[in-house]
Design a protein around this nucleic acid. Structure first.
Lengths: 243, 243
DNA sequence: TTCTAGACATTGGATGTCCCATCTCCTGTA
DNA sequence: TACAGGAGATGGGACATCCAATGTCTAGAA
């Protein structure tokens, strides 16, 4: 079989393009059939037959699509169109970050720059759309963070939750996902470097300050305090990297 | 062979985790050996032997790493640590965008929001670091855009180049890559929708306006004009999606 | 010295086989 | 009747092996 003859089979196209083309064909198949998030894809064997390529080849593309967050593979059950989620990017970006830290750690700094720009740039819009409910959620998160700090527990999750909820009013999944990715990458790099001494109280106070500005709907102050928050993170990262 | 017995072989771990673990092992191998961008990885067979898994299995993970931009695979030659590049993300994000357009196109709008926040948020820092050389590059790009517009050619590439150069002073590869990804995704979605009527002159003038503000180092004005630029894009996208 | 053809190493792809994870449904029991 | 447990079907996971395709490098000829 292998009816690859259908296409002109340019043979000059680099293999990389062929591989990429297969991924595209599968994505097109999903779109053409009107499959939506949660819907099941054909089985590997069916895809292999329909696309005229071996099952291993199909599997390689499917794994890539899984890594790209396009589909979700459930062993023994089937494959499904995945909900939006960028967790896949974490691996790649983390690798980049760790690779760069061997040199000068510049790329890790770039990541902070992007986070800073995104967050301080969007805080104004977020405040515009902020409701009392959102604010209540934020306060709950802050209280949880404070409790954790008193117990000497790491604040990773609460910190992430705070930033996630801060931008929830924007109702922008892409943004939330991106920020989550950056956050996780930063955390992994930080852990890989070995955490320096952390001042839990200072960290909590920083967030309370931001919270206060947001609660008062003071856009300029909130933006400024976010800027400083990231400046602090940047300095800390520089210290750790130097050690 | 298949000396998987080395590890406890938990067998209870979901397959997804095992797959992810293999990718991580390969990345760790790269980092442990001190391989740098451009260096060659062991061959597929060697990896298969070293990691104690079949070549097909290794290949699946390698394809994923390629898709994540971690490695570069050259048919018939070998595999190498890839330079930083996020082009892989384009596929996944484009798929998301097209999927969302079947509904209300919200996710495409989210993409514009993120671009707007990034660009208008960072233009200030970019202007701070702007040199005459950067400015000259920008002017060249603008002149090329104007020429293309006069000939009625599409401005896609010049548009992308303009934004790329606008933030070149920041020397932040992550940012440039991200913006490139967003831009390409936007373009693909736009093409998939069928381009509506485009006003080349207006588009060029928008960019000249931004250029002027940047050349005058007027941060506030540049930021505002960038905001309006994206507002225009957003409106246009809404029109096309509605049609 | 320069160009070309072929050997070689390495990845690309196909097929078959077996294993094992998950779900479904049916049966037996309370 | 309702619930629990297990058998079977479905379908992905892993592997071995073959051959094809391709980029590199080298040896030989002009």
């Amino acid at each position: 079989m292998a009816i690859a003859s259908q296409e002109v089979s340019p043979a000059r196209f680099s293999a990389q393009l062929r591989s990429h083309a297969l991924q595209t064909r599968i994505m097109d198949l999903i779109l053409d059939r009107g499959l939506d998030v949660g819907d099941a894809l054909p089985t590997e064997s069916e895809l292999s037959a329909e696309l005229g390529v071996g099952r291993n080849t199909v599997r390689e593309s499917l794994k890539v699509l899984q890594a790209l967050g396009v589909i979700e593979i459930r062993h023994g059950f089937g494959m499904f169109v995945a909900p939006n989620n960028f967790s896949a990017l974490v691996s790649g970006l983390t690798f980049r970050g760790r690779l760069s830290l061997r040199h000068k750690g510049e790329e890790a700094m770039e990541l902070i720059d992007v986070r800073q720009a995104l967050e301080s740039g969007l805080i104004g819009s977020a405040i515009d759309l902020l409701t009392d409910e959102h604010l209540a959620d934020l306060r709950v998160t802050m209280e949880a963070m404070e409790n954790a700090a008193k117990k000497g527990e790491p604040l990773y999750e609460h910190d992430a939750e705070f930033h996630r909820r801060l931008y929830a009013p924007l109702n922008n999944d892409l943004l939330i996902n991106l920020m989550d990715v950056f956050w996780q990458v930063y955390r992994k790099i930080h852990l890989a470097l070995g955490t320096g001494p952390v001042n839990l109280e200072q960290q909590t106070q920083d967030h309370w300050d931001i919270f206060e500005a947001v609660a008062n709907k003071d856009k300029a102050l909130a933006s400024e305090r976010l800027q400083r928050h990231f400046d602090g993170i940047r300095l800390k990262l520089k210290d750790v990297a130097a050690a």
